[in-house]
Structure formats: C-alpha cells, structure tokens
Write a protein that binds this DNA or RNA. Structure first.
Lengths: 160, 160
DNA sequence: GCCTAATACTACGAAATCGTATTAATAATC
DNA sequence: GATTATTAATACGATTTCGTAGTATTAGGC
C-alpha cells in the first residue's frame, strides 16, 4: 500500500514522470507539449478551454502553449462559427505525423503492460482502474450517487 | 490495447488537484512544493539529488525549490559530515505541521477510492496496479547512453 | 430590444522551471 | 600523493507557467 501510495503521488503530481525513454521525443518538445499533442490527437479537435481542463492547466498557460505549437506548425486554431469566442484546436498534418510517432513510442509501454498481465488480469485491471478513475474525477462537492458504475466485479486469481 | 490507451488518456495526463478544496493550503503552496513536502515527509530525510529523482525534476529546479522552502521555514538543509558535497533535507517542525495537514486533506482521495470499490476489489486493484507499475518501470533494452544531463528517474520499489 | 451577467479567450508581468556551465568535494588510477 | 575522473550541488540566462486584469462575444432577465 505504501508503494502504491508513492506511485500514485508521483504520477498524480507529475504525470509522465514515470515514463522515461521518451528521450527522442523530448528533444523536440517538452512534457506539456507532448501532453497537449497526445490529447489533441486523441480528441480530434477541442476548444482552448477543453484543452486546458484536459491538461489540468490554467487557460492562460494553454494560450501560450498553443501559440508555441502553432509556431511549430503542429496545430491550427480556427474560430468557431457558432460562437465567436471559441477557437477550435486541431493537429496539422505535421502535427499528426509527430503525434503518431509519439504514440508509437508510447505504445511500447502499453505492450509491456499487456505482456506482464494475463488477459484476465488485464481485463480486470481495466475495469477496476476505470472505476477508480471515475471515483477520482468526481467533483468533491458533489454528494456522490453511488449507483452507476457499482456493479460488482468477479474476483480473479492474480499470478505473481 | 485501445482500452489501455483510453485509460491512460483519461487519467494519466492530467495532474490531480490534490489539495482541491483546501483553499487555505492551496494558497500557501504550489504543486511542486506540495510534492516536495510530501516526499520529504514520507522519506524522513534525503539528499538534494534524491529529492530531484523522487520528484522527477532536474536538480537545478530542485535547488531553487529547496531555497523557497527554506525561506518559508518548512525545511532545513544541513551539510553532510560524511560527504561535504551532499546536503540533507528534512522538514522543520513547521514543515511537519503543514505536511500533516496536507496529507490529511489528501487522504480524501484514498477514501474515495475505497468507497468506490469493495474490499475485495480494492485488494485486487492494488495487486494489479503494482504489477502494472512494475512493468512500466522495467528498463527496456538499455541501448541509450544516459545522454548527458538527463536526470535518471528513481524507481519505486515494488515487492511481490 | 436593452442592460447586466457569464463565458471564452488573450495580455502582461511575476514567479517557477529547465538546460548548461561552473564550483567544490570525493573517488579512482597510476 | 599527485592527477584525473566523477559526483553533488549551485549559478545563471532563457523559456515556460501562472495569476490577474482586460476584451470581446453570447446568454439571461425584464
């Protein structure tokens, strides 16, 4: 439990810090640029505010971050027709190329995880992790409706 | 694989706002100060380099971070007798008090996780999460020279 | 419609972070 | 034991982040 605690803090406070080996990527971009790229790649397109909340950063920070990425030619921003206040952010072709490379680099980590677990374990882990993730994302103020994701998971054996 | 990826994005990139709701504490420190405080609290005392690797930050960053914390009166640094190059970092009484408060605030997160899972599920989740953590940390084919200047990340010890 | 409130974002200066160069102390080699 | 290499940390300038104030646009009363 202690160890999990450590893991949790480390990753909770400084995401991506557990994962080294992104050296090749990190020479071209820093952590937040990588996170932004991956997020935009994953979401397709989003607004500045959405990007900010996804990244857990203040909007003003994301403004400059986005400016940098535009300068690098990796993303483009277009003003929304429906609401002139909002800007849509999406990857350019070059951004996509870089994003794909980043993804490829990272998928090594996912493969490692898959290799380490049996299919059953993986399934179980995913289910539980989703539950935990959901629990963590809830607004603290919100008075917790227990229902939704609470169906019970069957127990499986975990090999060491 | 898809699911793992999704999981990673939904929860892996965004730092948690751990002090969320404790406005009183939040106004006193930023994320890295919190992380440092908790790390030192957890470890008792450590050297500057150790702190840097624990935090996943470069040493030069930790130098200024530590200066700030000294100024705030939360930590103290003493030069090691055994090796004059190293400084031991530990919490002052005031630092301990604040650290305790921060920890208490944060334990809400654990309660949430516990509330979301049955005891059996929790047990399974812990076991699996540790396995995954271990898998992520294992060195891939160490083909790279440490690329001068890049700090190595500390491994979290995970027992079976 | 008009006025006020809320929202989406940018501007800007202050603070934090990072990479690289440098200093000082210890370890290793001969 | 002198010389070189390595390690632990700081110095410093450049870049990034952040909080706050400001601007423009849309939403909500009435």
């Amino acid at each position: 439990m202690e160890q999990l605690f450590e893991l949790f803090f480390r990753n909770g406070l400084r995401p991506l810090s557990l994962l080294d080996g992104a050296a090749e990527l990190e020479s071209k971009m820093n952590r937040s640029e990588l996170a932004a790229l991956l997020t935009i790649r994953y979401r397709g397109r989003l607004t500045m505010s959405e990007l900010a909340t996804e990244l857990g950063a203040p909007l003003s920070t994301v403004t400059s971050l986005a400016q940098r990425l535009v300068r690098k030619g990796w993303i483009e921003r277009t003003r929304s027709d429906a609401d002139q206040r909002v800007y849509w952010v999406r990857l350019t072709d070059e951004g996509k190329a870089i994003g794909d490379r980043a993804y490829a680099t990272m998928s090594v980590w996912f493969e490692r995880v898959q290799a380490a677990l049996t299919p059953k374990e993986l399934e179980q882990f995913l289910a539980l992790a989703l539950k935990v993730g959901k629990a963590l994302q809830q607004d603290k103020g919100a008075k917790e409706k227990p229902a939704a994701g609470k169906e019970k998971l069957s127990r499986i054996r975990i090999d060491d």
